[in-house]
Amino acid sequence: MNIKKQFKEGLITNNPVLVQLIGMCATMAITTTLFNGVGMGLSVLIILTCCNVVVSAIRKIIPNEIRLAIFVVIIAGFVTIVDLLLKAYIPALSDALGVFIPLIVVNCIIIGRAEAFCQKNSVGASFFDGVFQGLGYTCVLIIMCVVRELLGSGRFGGGLIDIANGFRFTLDGTGAGIQIFPEDFGASILTLPFGGFITLGLLIALMQYALKRSAKKKAAAEKAAQADKEETVC
């Protein structure tokens, strides 16, 4: 298992949200501003990487019968640490994400990776798996946020980018973002729950379309190669 392959798997071919179809709740719930999406994505990335490393490090010591219980305790531990740190240092993010930070405990991505990957792989591989799967998750969140925020309220980077005093990034959630077209022209329905379901649905459909097309292309190329071979044989 090499790093390049893991990178491609995490981001595209085995993307946690678009291909494995796990961790949907937060993906739809909090992706209304770029601030939320980046914050949630990075929190999950950090928790996932830490859990992967710890689970993989102790994979030979823990008894098989209670492994799930132990995974849950470890995950809950890291989630609480991140929750407390966010409350102390980035309170605006903690307010915006609310109950969805502690709910990372039951996000299937983390327990799923622990069960499917870290149990069988070395600490190093698990670390990279955590980083790349986390990145894949973050990318999906960012795409969702950008689409919903832009079409919903005509803004980009709400909460994260402050242009009132020159272009800069803020972490206190007060940045108004870049207004691309007036808010009243936006389809504000996209920032509502309905928009969450539809945007994610279309995104997964797009992914399936792309994957199918590339699979078809590959098959066609193979067929052509086969035909070439046969011709030369003749």
């Binding site: 928009g195 539809i198 649905g201």
Partner: peptide, 23 residues
């Protein structure tokens, strides 16, 4: 429905419409 909507996407779209009704 279009082939690429097979499985989850079509479910999400129908769920979105239900969410709209619940609004």
């Amino acid at each position: 429905y279009p082939e690429c909507f097979e499985g989850f996407p079509i479910c999400l779209v129908s769920a979105g419409l239900l969410a709209l009704a619940f609004m």
